[in-house]
């Protein structure tokens, strides 16, 4: 029992090593963080202004611009959060390659699950803070009315979605492990595809039928469906399980599969000599 406690304590400390290291990197790269925050805020505001200007754009005065603005705002904020998670997890190997520390980190006595837990912990905290800052900027610009919205339900959907997106990020992080030169680019293609099919700024029903099928396996599509339903329609939490359960299922199945696949990719990289630094 004591041994198990010590093991857990050790794994918690090792996971924290990744969280602390990443926040130290954020601190040291503060200039770029500021640039990225300003750019993301401007992009999110620009998207939300499309909603505000929808009546003027179409010339139809009966459009519910407030609804449309919140619809887009949910899309842009949720995507900021999920993309942040995906970026920070899928690029964990690429960061180490850029810095030249990949061999040092991978020869440390750390289980991959522990490393991924630490990276995911950082990704969730970082993305949450990042998204909240953008959210605050948006509430300062737009007069938003959340009367009747089920914010707690929306938060539950977001948490469930986080688990499945972490699993997706872990699986994508294999690409930089297998392809030292092009892996990082590949993860961005995956992310772009998710942006296209997940209904971030439009209902997935407008997509061509083939992409609608693909959208059904994108966790982001379920997250957005659930959050929009909770905030725009005030759907009670009890009725949100239809999206929460698939999200949890994707996460529960996806996490061990992702960690296993990562381990297999690591063994392949060790057999073929792909752990060396690049860049």
């Amino acid at each position: 029992m004591l041994g198990k406690n010590l093991d857990l304590q050790l794994e918690a400390l090792q996971s924290y090593a990744f969280v602390a290291r990443n926040f130290n990197l954020v601190k040291r790269y503060w200039g770029w963080e500021l640039v990225w925050l300003a750019y993301s805020t401007a992009t999110s505001l620009a998207v939300a202004f499309i909603g505000e200007g929808s009546a003027l754009i179409t010339g139809q005065e009966d459009i519910d611009t407030s609804f449309f603005t919140v619809y887009l705002l949910i899309g842009t904020l949720v995507w900021r959060f999920l993309a942040g998670l995906f970026d920070n997890i899928s690029e964990m190997i690429q960061w180490e390659r850029w810095e030249g520390t990949i061999e040092y980190t991978l020869m440390a006595p750390v289980h991959r699950f522990t490393q991924i837990a630490g990276q995911a912990g950082f990704a969730i905290i970082y993305s949450l803070i990042f998204t909240m800052i953008i959210g605050l900027a948006m509430t300062a610009v737009f007069s938003l009315d959340f009367t009747g919205a089920n914010l707690l339900g929306a938060l539950l959907v977001l948490l469930a979605g986080s688990v499945s997106f972490v699993a997706l990020g872990v699986t994508a992080s294999i690409l930089p492990l297998l392809y030292p030169e092009r892996g990082a680019q590949m993860t961005h293609i995956v992310q772009a595809f998710l942006l296209l099919v997940s209904g971030i700024y439009y209902p997935i029903e407008v997509l061509p039928p083939v992409l609608q099928v693909v959208a059904r396996i994108s966790p982001a599509a379920y997250v957005l469906e659930g959050i929009r339903s909770a905030i725009l329609d005030g759907t009670p939490t009890a009725e949100l399980w239809g999206v929460i359960l698939p999200l949890l299922a994707l996460g529960i199945v996806g996490m061990p599969v992702g960690v296993w696949a990562f381990r297999q990719a690591e063994l392949y990289a060790k057999r073929t000599g792909k752990l060396k630094r690049v860049g």
Binding site: Q14, A17, L25, R28, E103, Y104, A108, P109, V110, R277
Partner: peptide
């Protein structure tokens, strides 16, 4: 292991790099 190219997070300080390494080893 100490390799020929000192593999560090170059933006981090020696203390930050050492703390990271030490925590990995418990």
């Amino acid at each position: 292991r100490v390799s020929v190219d000192a593999a560090f997070f170059k933006k981090l300080s020696p203390l930050e790099n050492l703390l990271y390494g030490a925590r990995l080893y418990g």
